[in-house]
Amino acid sequence: MNKIIFLLTTGIVAAIIFFVPPIKGLGELAKIIFFHVPTAWVSVVAFFSSAFFASKFLRTNNFSFDELSARAAKLGFVFVLLSTISGAIFSKLTWGAYWNWDPRQTTIFVLILIYGAYLTLRAAITDEKIRAKVSAVYSLLSVLTVPFLVFVIPRMYFSLHPSPISSSGVEMDSEVVIVLVAAVVDATLIFVRLMRR
C-alpha cells in the first residue's frame, strides 16, 4: 500500500506542476486547490469514521474501536487545519480576503470546533473506560449537527465558493477534474494507511 501511495502522490505532484495549466488569472499558487479539496474531503471522511467507530465501541465495548475513533479524530483534526489554511490562501488569491464566513468556510470551522472539543474532552478524562464511553457519546452527538448545519448555514451566509457543476455543465477543464479526483483518492488512501498504523 505504501508503494501505491508513494507512486500516486509523486504522479499527482508532477501532474500539478508540469501538466495542469495555470488557473485563469490566478497564477501558480492557486494550484493549492489540489491540496485544499482532498484535505477537506478527508477531514469530513475522518469525522464520520470517528463517529462510526464510536458507535461500534458503544455496541461492542471493544476498546480497539475507541482507539480507532480517537485516531480518526486526531487525523481529522490535522487534515481540517491543513484544509482550512490552504483554503484561506486560495480564498485570498481568488476573492481578496483570507476569511469571509462563506457557508463552506463556516462548516469547516464548526468541524474544527467539534474536533477540538472532542480532543479536549479526551484529554480531560483520565479513567480510560470512562473516557472511551464519554468521548464516543460526544462523537455521536456532534455528528447529528451536520445535516442541520448543511441545511441552515447556506441560508445564513452568502456563498462565494464555485459550484463545480453548474447548470451550464462542468466548468473545469477535464484534466483538472481528473487530477483533482486522483488527489482526493490519494488523500483518502493516505488517511486509510495512517488509520492502520
Binding site: V110, L113, I114, L121, A124, I125, S142
Partner: peptide, 27 residues
C-alpha cells in the same frame, strides 16, 4: 453528564456545548 468525570471543569462545558447547539443558535 459527559463533563462530570472530567478533570478540568472550567471552560470544558462551553467548549463541548457550543458546536452541538450551533444548529439552534444560527437560526
Amino acid at each position: 453528564a459527559l463533563t462530570t468525570s472530567a478533570k478540568i471543569k472550567g471552560g470544558l462545558f462551553a467548549i463541548l456545548l457550543f458546536p452541538v447547539t450551533l444548529p439552534i443558535f444560527l437560526p
